[in-house]
Design a binder for these strands. Structure first.
Lengths: 236, 236
DNA sequence: CGGCAGTTTGAGGTACGTCAAGAATAGTGG
DNA sequence: CCACTATTCTTGACGTACCTCAAACTGCCG
């Protein structure tokens, strides 16, 4: 069933092939997949799609970091999600067959694999297993959003920022002696948009975390004690 | 394909048959569906399932109103969703094959149609169209959560309460002369859990809305001018 | 050198949380 | 029908956190 053609699967050599939504396809679909498949590089700050664009297919982050942001009529914006390598983006508008409600912008130099809407649609219709995988990505997304809703009504903004920084540290941190440090992939304004506060408040939250002594900031450089990484501070 | 057996479809006479996730099944699956199908009535306050229960299948609200609530370790809770007739509940834990992360409790006398986990699973595997419908319910859920996240970081609690009351009014309101009034299906504590504030704050928000002159409260009775229903007040 | 966007700091007002007490409501048993 | 109790809801007082407006400061790039 997943026969010889698999050596031609465009995701074959991808580090995320095992969990890929495109992994369980039949031989015939590999051809369709290959036809609709393309790769592109994004510079830091470059957009993959804009809010309001019609869906062009399914995108998979292969390298870098993508921010999904919704822009509000009053000029403000909310950062909905950070997408890391292996994650699918655009599936909401793909499954709903609607326009994108977020813009996707690279926070770091990134690489994206795309499957054209028409071909993706054909493959999904022909391979229930692919749809099943997409459904579990949806469930993941629901869980993420749910956690965020709960956090915003049970934790303080300071605590939520601390949680966010620890998660970012696990992804971007490098150990150096008895400290772990990272270069934040987000500006203060992006952090504010992610936590849901004003930039001025974000600046003050950072100062308050600094004065608590656990985090040390210097521009986009953040440092914590190496012992602090895996204990996900449940303080306050 | 959707042949003679359809007259035996357990949802055949349901008001929500057209949009039902179980509508597009083949003849053989109707038998499985019928086998796994059951109905139950819930009194006000009765639970359908508890947080931590393992998934028992897929539930569809047929009458009444169900609250999905997550309970936090500290004794507080968050109301995640109100499910009205025609809506599916339990699909997150069904698709993820995990335990429920919310409890489902009837806010009004309700009726629930259930399909047993084993049978639901068999049908979903045999009918990609069912999975497709489940996926769009997921997308709906993602949209709902997304709107809530955005609202919580762009609108005031007072405005969000006003929005909520207007939505409830559309569902539960009865016109009487030049006013529309409803019996709130939610306690003040539930309203607080839904907006994400303390009960004391909810009480004060209600008083502030009252003094704005648009809403009138008397216990669980809420009244607004009939002209106000369809203009979804964008004030403040 | 001079913008310019991102960031920080200050001052003042508003809204929310918390603790504590009081009022209303519903339910129970005499 | 009336106590009596238990919830639920409201009110007050006070502290903290956030928003807003305004101004200063920091790179950074032309």
């Amino acid at each position: 069933m997943l026969g010889a053609q698999n050596s031609n699967h465009p995701c074959r050599n991808c580090a995320f092939y095992e969990g890929s939504v495109w992994q369980p396809v039949d031989t015939r679909s590999v051809l369709v997949l290959t036809r609709g498949f393309s790769r592109q590089a994004l510079d830091e700050g470059q957009t993959l799609f804009n809010q309001g664009d019609k869906n062009q297919g399914l995108f998979c982050v292969s390298k870098g970091l993508i921010a999904l942001r919704t822009l509000h009529p009053d000029g403000t914006s909310t950062l909905m999600r950070l997408a890391y390598p292996g994650e699918i983006i655009g599936f909401r508008s793909f499954l709903g067959d609607r326009e994108h409600r977020t813009e996707a912008r690279a926070l770091l130099p990134s690489r994206i694999c795309s499957v054209e809407q028409r071909d993706a649609d054909r493959i999904v219709r022909g391979n229930p297993a692919v749809l099943e995988k997409l459904a579990s990505r949806c469930v993941f997304e629901i869980d993420r959003n749910r956690e965020r809703i709960i956090a915003s009504s049970t934790k303080s903004n300071k605590q939520r920022l601390a949680d966010l920084l620890l998660r970012l540290m696990e992804e971007h941190g490098d150990r150096a002696g008895d400290h772990v440090s990272m270069q934040l992939p987000l500006s203060r304004m992006d952090l504010a948009d992610l936590i849901g506060v004003q930039p001025e408040t974000m600046s003050r939250l950072v100062r308050r975390l600094e004065s608590d002594g656990f985090f040390h900031f210097s521009g986009r450089e953040v440092q914590i004690p190496a012992t602090g990484l895996h204990k996900m501070a449940a303080n306050q």
